[in-house]
Design a protein around this nucleic acid. Structure first.
Lengths: 343, 343
DNA sequence: TTGAAAGCGGTACCAC
DNA sequence: GTGGTACCGCTTTCAA
């Protein structure tokens, strides 16, 4: 659709030059009150809306932020309602600061990020980036402000938003220990123990788990390390394994979604939660508190996460150097119904 | 960030005019194979990416679609994971057709939709529009292709994607009737019976409910009409009411999210599901099948919904007039664990 | 205070 | 086939 009304027509209607109209629109000041009023009325009457594209072409500021989300990674987006909350926070924050969000689902392997230059994006929020595959390097090469959310990046120069994951791991494990559990299985996700250190988030939660164990003088048993995908399905598989294990009385899942699967699976196998096995998750999805039984979990404010990401990004874009490149959000233990004293 | 490499530099490197480079880029044909190769190599070597904004300014085609989502309406977005699935479908469809999605959370009351003209959007997908407040009229005035998803619009000229809601209502109710239930409560949402006709989706599901009752020769009792918000919280309230009602043996909730709340609430009140009361929902969220007990529901393919919306929109944008303005997606009854024979 | 005019980076028409 | 050039709609010097 073509521009129906443009600057020149407003100018004609107000009997001034286009430069003056432009000055009025951008509040440049140097316009007499009388003319300004004339111009504003003309704008009003004609229902003029400026063409941002033309403006961007000139100013190189698109006020457009790309939200980069790897798709088709099993156990991530499609399966995890977590992302909806995050998105809500990001959109809201962007709107408040007069930015728009452009959605970019990508295949991490072969994405060139051409759209960033093509559409002159002001910045990027990259959710769940991984260090592998080189996608992150390619993004950085673009030279565009970028914030990584829930990514597993060890480079301290990058802007990141994450949680106090270690504390979360600690709190969850301590809670189970205090209840009297000693055989506490752990489900980080679909990852081998020796690769845990490459994944910041999981590594931290893991450290918290180990730390709590140590403080309590409980030895760590590597056989209690489970490896299943971060999804409802993965939780189901973990439940089957738990049943075989026999002596495990509690599980710490690093995500609510798989914790839900575990609870579901355990019950299907005829085991009681928390009667036979206690389950604790991580995330506190909007649904977690409403399950039956309600899930005990480590809570994070996901909407806050989105807001923080936007803030960090906009500060970069507008050169307002923030103090820190990494925002660490707090966690909170929410004790509900899936944990109890061991049988 | 300023354009690092532009057409003119590619032209210089390839020793041709910018017009020729443009012709190569846009596959206009009229270029000799030799020059084309030279140009392509220059593009490659310089890492040139065209500036879409400049192109759009000239061609008026932004290949950008606005996804309009009313925010802050309780019981909608924030609370309902449903939208995440929808979004995934829309983004995927858009990507396949080389469009990008720009997210626009709006307050339905006072949104002017200025961003549509400002950013020269090619089209709009409006999720959950309501006939009230005049937002729809304002959108239509823009003269931009538009598709309404899950909106309650009676104007047959509008492009819409929805479900076979009536069939869904019919199937759900028939299922309960066949199990032997006679006192079947219904929870459409936070809406009065006399206003139901203004809301296409709910009205249709309602018709299905009434129809099934009629076919089975079961009289309709208006006291079984519940009115609570479409959210987990609303379901909880409904559960409290059900307990008071006493003789109700089954409930049909028009959304999974409130059905989950009902199940949760009922159990808290000490009632068994489905032992005392059967519950059936509508949506089939990704989590619904994994709850304990798993929710019986009317299933819709939400991702398909997103894809259909994009198709309908792109057909409009590219003038490929489709047959029909309204796409009605199928529903399917998924019998799981929350329904059974009455006590 | 106001206006004329030179771009921003492309597209497309029209000569050659 | 190829190149010159007039726009697209706005911002921004620089003069008047």
């Amino acid at each position: 659709m073509k521009q129906d009304i443009r600057l020149s027509e407003v100018a004609r209607a107000a009997r001034v030059s286009i430069a003056t109209v432009s000055n009025v629109i951008n509040d440049k000041g140097r316009v007499s009150t009388a003319t300004e009023r004339r111009v504003r009325r003309a704008i009003e009457q004609l229902g003029y809306a400026p063409n941002l594209l033309a403006r961007i072409l000139k100013t190189n500021q698109s006020r457009l932020i790309g939200l980069v989300i790897p798709t088709a990674r099993p156990g991530r987006l499609q399966d995890n309602p977590f992302y909806w909350d995050l998105l809500a926070g990001i959109e809201e924050g962007a709107r408040d600061r007069d930015f728009h969000i452009i959605l970019a689902g990508i295949e991490e392997g072969d994405e060139t990020f051409a759209f960033v230059k093509e559409r002159q994006l002001d910045g990027l929020i990259y959710v769940g980036a991984s260090e592998e595959g080189g996608a992150v390097e390619r993004v950085l090469e673009l030279g565009v402000p970028c914030v990584f959310v829930d990514s597993y990046l060890r480079d301290a120069r990058l802007y990141q938003v994450c949680l106090d994951d270690r504390l979360g791991g600690l709190l969850a494990t301590q809670h189970l220990l205090e209840l009297g559990h000693r055989r506490i299985a752990v489900l980080p996700g679909d990852i081998a123990p020796e690769r845990l250190h490459r994944n910041g988030v999981l590594q931290e939660r893991w450290s918290g788990y180990r730390l709590a164990l140590e403080e309590a003088g409980v030895g760590y048993d590597p056989r209690l390390f489970m490896r299943y995908p971060t999804s409802m399905e993965g939780g189901l598989q973990a439940a089957a394994w738990l049943r075989e294990a026999g002596d495990v009385t509690a599980v710490f899942s690093f995500s609510d979604i798989s914790a839900m699967g575990i609870v579901k699976g355990l019950r299907q196998e005829g085991l009681g939660v928390p009667a036979d096995i206690s389950v604790i998750g991580f995330d506190d999805l909007c649904l977690s508190g409403y399950m039956s039984p309600a899930l005990t979990t480590v809570s994070q404010n996901i909407v806050q996460k989105g807001l923080a990401a936007i803030r960090l990004l906009v500060d970069q874009i507008e050169q307002e150097a923030g103090f820190s490149r990494k925002v660490v959000l707090p966690v909170e233990l929410k004790v509900r119904e899936t944990t109890g004293t061991p049988a």
